[in-house]
Simulated scan of single mutants.
Amino acid sequence: MIYPIVAFGDPVLKTRAKDIPADFPADELKQIVHDMYDTMYHAHGVGLAAPQVAKGIRLFVIDSEPMIDNEDEETGEPLPDAEKGVKRAFINPQMVLETGEEWGFEEGCLSIPGVREMVYRHETIVLRYEDENRQPHEETFSGMTARVIQHEYDHLEGVLFTDKISGFKKQLIKGKLTRISKGDVNADYRMRFAGQGRR
């Protein structure tokens, strides 16, 4: 099932998501994870958090492979220390540590189509989480994968990438954000707008 993606302006995007209890039905959770992957790929995304599909639970999925350039630009040969993409579901994640120099990258979001802004994030993170089989992990991620995880983790905290830009930049995109919240947007995937249902 492909979910409609919640657009900027819906309160679910600004609300901290709740932990998924240990007794949550395993089959139902696996189905949600499966459907979130389908939704993410359908919208050509590299990450999707449960609040973006109107579910206020601490879950996100990523596939960072499309964001990573593992080849030498001149020769086309694989880089020796190339970062590997990660495809994974993260359940009840907890950020343990963010380290390294902050670096900028122009981010976008499926809930805010057509808007991209420079966001600075830490190079390396340590994350504690459960996989879709509810097995616990604590793992270190870096580079682009760490960025994708930080972006999706923010969604679970009720934080959008537009919250991380300067007041001046926010003023510049205010009109765009207002139009998105009202459903005046071009996206090649179904969206759901606050107070308007889906489209």
Rank of each mutant, 00 (worst) to 15 (best):
V148L: 05
D10G: 04
L48Y: 00
V46F: 03
P21Q: 13
M1F: 06
P66T: 02
D184E: 14
R192C: 11
V86W: 02
F168V: 12
V6C: 07
T39S: 10
T75W: 02
G143E: 10
M36L: 04
Y129T: 03
M36V: 07
E139Y: 00
D10F: 09
I180A: 10
G195D: 13
E130F: 01
K174C: 06
T140Y: 04
L97E: 14
P51F: 02
V33M: 13
K164Y: 03
P93G: 02
M191A: 10
A89R: 02
P21G: 09
G114N: 09
A22E: 15
P93H: 00
T75I: 02
D72T: 03
F90V: 06
K182H: 13
Q171M: 10
R199G: 14
V46H: 00
E117F: 12
Y189V: 11
A26Q: 15
E139R: 01
P21D: 15
R190Y: 03
S166W: 03
H122I: 06
L48I: 10
F161G: 00
F24H: 13
I165V: 15
S64K: 01
K84A: 13
E152A: 04
D63P: 11
M67S: 10
L13V: 08
V53T: 11
K164G: 05
R16K: 15
D131N: 13
L127P: 13
M118K: 15
T178V: 11
S166K: 05
I62A: 03
N133S: 07
F24D: 14
F193T: 03
L156C: 11
P51G: 11
R190E: 10
E98A: 14
P11T: 00
V148R: 04
E106W: 12
V86H: 04
A22F: 08
F161S: 03
E83T: 02
R198V: 05
P51L: 05
D23C: 01
P136N: 01
M144Q: 05
R147I: 11
L172P: 00
A54W: 03
M1N: 12
G167N: 11
D188W: 02
V53H: 04
F8H: 15
